[in-house]
Amino acid sequence: MKLPWKRIRRLLPALALAAAVALPASAASAATPATTSQALSSSGWNDFGCRPSAQHPRPVVLVHGTLGNGVDNWLGLAPYLVARGYCVFSLDYGQLPVVPLVYGLGPIDKSAEQLSAYVDKVLAATGATKADLVGHSQGGMMPRYYLKFLGGAAKVNALVGIAPTNHGTTMSGLTRLLDYFPEVRDLIDETAPALTDQVAGSEFLKRLNAGGDTVPGVRYTTIVTRYDEVVTPYTSGYLSGPGVRNVLLQDLCPLDLSGHVAIGLTDRIAFHEVANALDPAHATPTTCLSI
């Protein structure tokens, strides 16, 4: 059914808001098509023949962000971890039928079910009893639903969130405009529910964070940047509870100006902290010179 033009004009300001929420995250996806899984396997990434070593006994599953995918989001971090001896895997989740190449737009609880199935696949292939999860943006928050409600805590040792949307975002106050345009909120809920699920104060986030941010038996690390223009305030990415370490990038290197996209795609200081979180027994100090 086509919307009447008068109604469309009334929705334009809020549609612009939806674009403001979505577009910064979409920059995390490269302009080129996703690399084939066969090519990734030949480079040691998404190689289901990989067997974890005694030094790194758990496979690492990378979880992309909103409007990302399992390849483009990890062109920096995946090779970084492979070179350090990890078995590394990544998945696509939250696909919409009419949106190719970029994902993470579907209902977050359903995306968590996809993650659950993928972790089971990785554990079966590698013979490991537990995995470590590393996620960017939505990918740093969504696994918490898996851990809390889908039995993931028994299968996961650590969750590392890079600029995660753990307590939602206000987009510097822009998301409050949705309160004045309920039709647009409903439209986004119907067409790309992951966007409104990540707005601060959403029903999804209330359920996720009720009763505490963490579950027993899992180590949590968040890595955030003061210059995050998507997750605002940046402190909303922090977690509270046992087994949590919250890291501000600028405490490690005051010269680091990475925003929401760069911290997940190219920031070697953040990558070094990911490696420390995955193997805390052999962690080394992170500085501006870390590689």
Rank of each mutant, 00 (worst) to 15 (best):
M1G: 05
R10V: 13
R10C: 03
L11N: 14
L11T: 09
L12I: 15
A16C: 13
L17E: 09
A18S: 11
A19N: 14
A22M: 13
A22C: 05
L23C: 04
P24D: 09
P24M: 07
A25D: 02
A27Y: 13
A27W: 15
S29M: 01
A30C: 14
A30V: 14
T36A: 05
Q38A: 14
G44N: 03
G44H: 02
D47W: 00
G49R: 15
H56E: 07
H56A: 11
H56K: 02
R58S: 07
R58H: 11
V61C: 03
V63K: 03
V63D: 06
W74T: 03
G76Y: 08
L77K: 02
Y80T: 05
Y80W: 10
L91K: 01
V98F: 14
V98D: 15
V98E: 12
V98N: 15
V99A: 06
P107M: 07
Q114T: 13
S116Y: 00
Y118C: 02
V119A: 03
V122W: 07
A125H: 04
G127H: 09
A128M: 10
L133H: 07
V134N: 07
Q138E: 15
G140F: 09
P143Y: 09
K148G: 08
K148P: 11
A154T: 06
V156M: 03
N157M: 02
A158H: 05
G161N: 12
T170D: 13
T170V: 05
L174H: 02
R176M: 03
R176I: 01
L177D: 12
R185P: 01
L187I: 13
I188M: 13
A194F: 09
L195I: 15
L195T: 13
G201Q: 13
N209P: 00
N209D: 11
G211E: 12
G217V: 05
Y220N: 01
Y220L: 03
I223Q: 04
V224P: 00
T225H: 03
V230G: 01
G237E: 06
L239E: 08
G241V: 08
G243T: 08
V247T: 10
L257I: 05
I263G: 09
G264Q: 08
T266Y: 07
H272C: 10
D279F: 00
D279W: 02
A283P: 05
P285H: 09
C288I: 02
L289G: 02
I291N: 12
